[in-house]
Design a protein around this nucleic acid. Structure first.
Lengths: 218, 218
DNA sequence: AAAAATATTTAGATTAGCCTAAAAATTAAA
DNA sequence: TTTAATTTTTAGGCTAATCTAAATATTTTT
């Protein structure tokens, strides 16, 4: 019933890589967790022996129901702590991720449920990502990646899915944040970059970056 | 500059066992941490190699200045989290210890300093133990063990130094808590137990228990 | 002060999590 | 469809933290 930080990290990584469905490969997990493929294979054997994921050698893995349940509870802990850090302790939203990576492994269920209550049952973390409730349910909004937003449609940034320091820094530079209103004005086919209008200014965004910005049409 | 949870636990244990001065033995540490003497010896070699404690084989160990500094920072984290759990998340003071044992190993200094600020720089945790400030200083009150309180002197319970679940349960039963006013009315020399008056009731307390209750004369 | 009891250390294993290098399987390219 | 490139797994090692059992010190008792 209790899992090591390492096991939890693997389950969470696979959960994020699955993103909806399909299977995940060894290298993808290794890259996400900054380990080597051989280490991943070791852990996959252990986790599948425990029934937390389905594993076919050379083919890939996907979470079992039990595995997804655990992954969701880790995601819940992570995002609640992020919310706490940003909204109560006044951390900058760029700093919260790495601290939450540690806090998320403190396993008391009662702690997390009481924290949730104390925070007023927030729906999303400071990055706009939805927070699973104590039963693992998430209220999913109609979010789409900015790459799929039609021209001249007014939309709001809901979520940043890729949270590398680089991207966060970049967003700050461009003054794009959760809640920012924008419209796509032009699409450059030669490099797939986008010209985006916010207030009266036009900024250019690479396809890479646009992929990790989830927006909602107003 | 960064220590494992295990190393931190050993340093904290030795800190508590030293309690003012003197050296600490292998078995005492083993008992406190629920490990075996051989494990303690192994760790003592490592910690003394790192300069965190003074170690003479067969004689004992005591913290170096650097070791004490680390121990104090762990104690600080522990007690701040206890305070947070009890005063913000409404945990019963008996429950906070074990959760804080996990939280205390999240190492971000900035996190702890911001938490301290958020909580309003509390002086003591829910057990009445003083919380070291960010420089490791503690404001020590004139606390004495109940065993040393004179007869018929009115005093207040300040602190419970031994926090086993058993003791905490026992205190709840006897309705003794931080802040409770009491007087020692009688001392039974044959078993060293004490008759203590709180409000109008007299309760009997073993010498064992009295040792771990720190009080302050009013 | 010798014997007995206790405390501490050493020797040798074990487990989890990770690694490198080599082997095997799969997929892509010629 | 054979060869080349890539991906994944296996084999064998390493470190931190733990353990048991045996050896060595120290302390206490007689």
């Amino acid at each position: 019933m209790n899992y090591s930080s390492s096991e939890e990290n693997y389950l969470k990584a696979i959960y994020h890589l699955q993103e909806g469905g399909g299977t995940v490969g060894t290298n993808a997990v290794a890259e996400k967790l900054n380990t080597k493929a051989a280490s991943v294979t070791d852990m996959m054997k252990k986790l599948s022996a425990k029934g937390l994921l389905h594993y076919t050698p050379y083919y890939g893995f996907s979470l079992s129901n039990e595995g997804r349940k655990i992954a969701l509870s880790v995601v819940r802990r992570h995002r609640l702590w992020e919310y706490f850090l940003a909204n109560r302790l006044q951390f900058d939203w760029k700093e919260v991720h790495s601290i939450a990576e540690e806090l998320e492994h403190v396993s008391s269920k009662k702690l997390i449920d009481k924290l949730d209550e104390y925070l007023g049952y927030p729906q999303t973390d400071p990055h706009g990502d939805p927070i699973p409730d104590s039963k693992g349910r998430m209220t999913q909004s109609g979010a789409i990646p900015l790459t799929e937003l039609g021209l001249n449609l007014s939309a709001t940034i809901l979520q940043v899915t890729n949270q590398s320091d680089e991207i966060l820094e970049h967003l700050k530079d461009k003054q794009l944040q959760i809640g920012t209103l924008l419209e796509v004005k032009k699409l450059h086919s030669f490099d797939r970059s986008l010209d985006v209008k916010r207030k009266n200014k036009i900024v250019t965004i690479t396809h890479e970056l646009a992929k990790s910005l989830l927006v909602k049409i107003n």
